[in-house]
Design a protein around this nucleic acid. Structure first.
Length: 466
RNA sequence: GGCGGCGUAGCCAAGUGGCCAAGGCGGAGGUCUGCAAAACCUCUAUUCAGCGGUUCGAAUCCGCUCGCCGCCUCCA
C-alpha cells in the first residue's frame, strides 16, 4: 500500500510499526458550533481510510479527539450565559448525531481535552525540564529554536516565517514564533491548577498529549484537514518529539477542502453549509459517493446538482442488489467467481492501495455492476449463471461497504398500504389488458410519491425522489 | 512577498513517459415492453489551458505565458 505522506511530499509504501496493526489519530473538531460539510469531508475521508485498513485485515486503533476548551467555546458560553462545559457537551452530542447521519463510524477512542489535563501538564513539565519551554507570567511557551526540524512538515522556512510577521508580537516571548503550551487563566475562564499557576492548555498540546496517551509515543498515522498542517501539526511534532526524543507520527495524511463558490468553506468567511441541512436533502450514500468521486487530497466544490447525480449513479448497483435478492434470495452462491468476474476486486484494491484512489476504485465498482447486470438476463434460465451472479453481488456489496457505501439498510422501506392497494389493482387491470385503467392507476401512484415499474418478477415499487 | 496545488469531453472526475485518454451524470440511436421505467448494446475528447523545448515517443518531464485556488492568523 502506498500513502502520500505530507512529511516527505511523496507516496511511500505503508509499513506499520507493528505488523498487522494500524494506529491512527485524526484531529477532531472544536465543539462550539454545528459541523459543516468541510468537517463531513474530513470525517468521511478518514472513515474510508479506516474502513479500508479494516477491510485489508489490519487491526485498527482509531482515535479522534474533541477540543472542548478553547476561546471560541468560552466566547459562546459567555454570550449564552452558560458554563463552557454545557456548550461543549451540547455540540459533542450534535457532532455524534451528524456523524451517524452520514454513516461515519465512531472512533475507538474519542478523548476530550478537558479529561486529559494531567497528561498535558506532565508533557509541559517534561518540555520545561528538557529546556524546550519557558514560563512567563503563568504562561508557558515552546521555544521554537530548540527544535531545529520545525517547519519541515509544512515546508516553511523559519526566517521567512519571521519576515512574514503575521505572528503577533508579544514582547514577553523569546521569539515571536514561539507558541503557547499553557495559557494563564483570565477571570471568568475555565482553568486548572498547575505549578505555573491556574490556566488552560494551548490547542496544540492537547493533541500531542491525547494521541500519545492512547497510541504511544510513536504511532502510524496522523491526519486532519490540510489547514492543520501549519501551525497545528507542525507544533505537535515539535512538542512531542522534543519531549520523547522519538519520532512522533510516521505518516501524515491531509484532506483537501470543500469549497463553496470556488472558495474554501470556513466559519471565518461565513460561507458554511451545515451537515444538518445537507442530510435533509440527500442520502448519506449520495453524499459519500459524491465526495469519493474526487481524490481526497484535491479540493471539491459543493454542488447540490453533483450530489443528486451521485444519488442517480448509485441506483444501478443498488437495484442490482435488490433484484438479485428479490429473484434468488435462497439461491446458492457459486463456490468461486468465474474468471471474468474476478478482476474487479483486484482493480478496486489496486486503486485503493495507491493512496486511496477512490475515484478509480469507484470506476471498478461501476464496471463490476455493469458486468453483473449483463448476467442478470441469463440467470433466469441458467442455474450456473445464477450462482455466479449471487456470488458476484455479494462481492460487489463487500467492495462498496469497504468504502462505507450501502452501510444503511439495503432493503428500502416498502410503500404504504394505500399505495400497495393501487399497485395490486393496477396489476389486475393489466391482466384484463385494461391499459387505460392501468395507466391511470400508475399516475395516481406517482401522485402519492411512488413509482411502479414492471419487471419479470412483478411490479417494483420505489419511492420517487422529487 | 514566501511556499504549495490546480487547469482533461456539455458537466463532474481518474490517469503523471508508450496497447483504443477510466468511471459517473447528461445526450443520441437501438433491443426489450401494452405503454412506460429499468436493464442491456452502440455512439458521444485525433485530444488533455496556451506557446516553446527534451525524447524514437508526453496529457504525463523542462521553461515561459494566461487563469483559478490554498497555506503563511483561529480553521476539517
Amino acid at each position: 500500500m502506498k500513502i502520500y505522506n505530507t512529511l516527505t511530499r511523496r507516496k511511500e509504501e505503508f509499513v506499520p510499526l507493528t505488523p498487522g496493526e494500524v494506529r491512527m489519530y485524526v484531529c477532531g473538531v472544536t465543539v462550539y458550533d454545528l459541523c459543516h460539510i468541510g468537517h463531513a469531508r474530513s470525517a468521511i475521508v478518514f472513515d474510508v481510510i479506516r474502513r479500508y485498513f479494516h477491510y485489508k485485515g489490519y487491526r485498527v486503533t482509531f482515535v479522534k479527539n474533541f477540543t472542548d476548551v478553547d476561546d471560541k467555546i468560552i466566547n459562546r458560553a459567555q454570550q449564552e450565559g452558560v458554563p463552557a462545559l454545557e456548550v461543549s457537551e451540547r455540540f459533542i452530542r450534535e457532532f455524534r448525531e451528524d456523524m451517524a447521519a452520514i454513516g461515519v463510524w465512531p472512533a475507538h477512542v474519542e478523548p476530550k481535552a478537558t479529561e486529559h489535563i494531567s497528561e498535558m501538564i506532565a508533557l509541559i513539565e517534561r518540555l520545561i525540564a528538557g529546556g524546550f519551554a519557558y514560563v512567563v507570567d503563568g504562561d508557558v511557551y515552546f521555544e521554537i529554536r530548540r527544535f531545529p526540524p520545525y517547519g519541515r512538515l509544512s515546508g516553511k522556512n523559519l526566517d521567512e516565517l519571521l519576515a512574514g510577521a503575521r505572528v503577533d508580537v508579544d514582547e514577553r516571548k523569546r521569539d515571536p514564533r514561539d507558541f503557547a503550551l499553557w495559557k494563564a487563566a483570565k477571570p471568568g475562564e475555565p482553568s486548572w491548577p498547575s505549578r505555573w499557576g491556574p490556566g488552560r492548555p494551548g490547542w496544540h498540546v492537547e493533541c500531542s498529549a491525547m494521541s500519545m496517551r492512547y497510541l504511544g509515543e510513536s504511532f502510524d498515522i496522523h491526519g486532519g484537514g490540510e489547514d492543520l498542517i501549519f501551525p497545528h501539526h507542525e507544533c505537535e511534532i515539535a512538542q512531542s518529539e522534543s519531549s520523547t526524543g522519538k519520532p512522533f507520527a510516521r505518516y501524515w495524511i491531509h484532506n483537501g477542502f470543500v469549497n463553496l463558490g470556488a472558495e474554501k468553506m470556513s466559519k471565518s468567511l461565513g460561507n458554511v453549509l451545515a451537515i444538518r441541512e445537507v442530510v435533509k436533502r440527500h442520502s448519506a450514500d449520495a453524499l459519500r459517493l459524491w465526495m469519493l468521486g474526487t481524490h481526497y487530497r484535491h479540493p471539491i466544490e459543493w454542488s447540490e446538482a453533483r450530489v443528486r447525480e451521485s444519488a442517480r449513479a448509485l441506483e444501478r448497483p443498488v437495484r442490482l442488489l435488490h433484484d438479485v435478492r428479490a429473484f434468488w434470495s435462497g439461491a446458492h452462491a457459486a463456490p468461486e467467481l468465474p474468471g471474468e468476474l474476478r478482476g474487479f476486486r483486484a482493480r478496486f484494491e489496486a486503486a485503493m492501495d495507491d493512496d486511496f484512489n477512490t475515484p478509480q476504485a469507484l470506476g471498478a465498482i461501476f464496471d463490476f455492476s455493469r458486468a453483473l447486470y449483463e448476467r442478470l438476463e441469463r440467470a433466469h434460465a441458467d442455474a450456473e449463471a445464477r450462482g455466479a451472479l449471487v456470488a458476484g453481488v455479494a462481492e460487489l456489496q463487500a467492495l462498496m461497504q469497504a468504502l462505507g457505501l450501502l452501510a444503511g439498510a439495503v432493503e428500502p422501506a416498502g410503500p404504504p398500504p394505500e399505495v400497495e392497494r393501487l399497485v395490486v389493482e393496477r396489476g389486475q387491470a393489466r391482466e384484463r389488458r385494461d391499459f387505460m385503467r392501468a395507466d391511470e392507476l400508475r399516475a395516481e401512484i406517482q401522485g402519492l410519491g411512488w413509482a411502479v415499474e414492471d419487471t419479470a418478477a412483478g411490479p417494483r415499487v420505489t419511492r420517487r425522489d422529487a
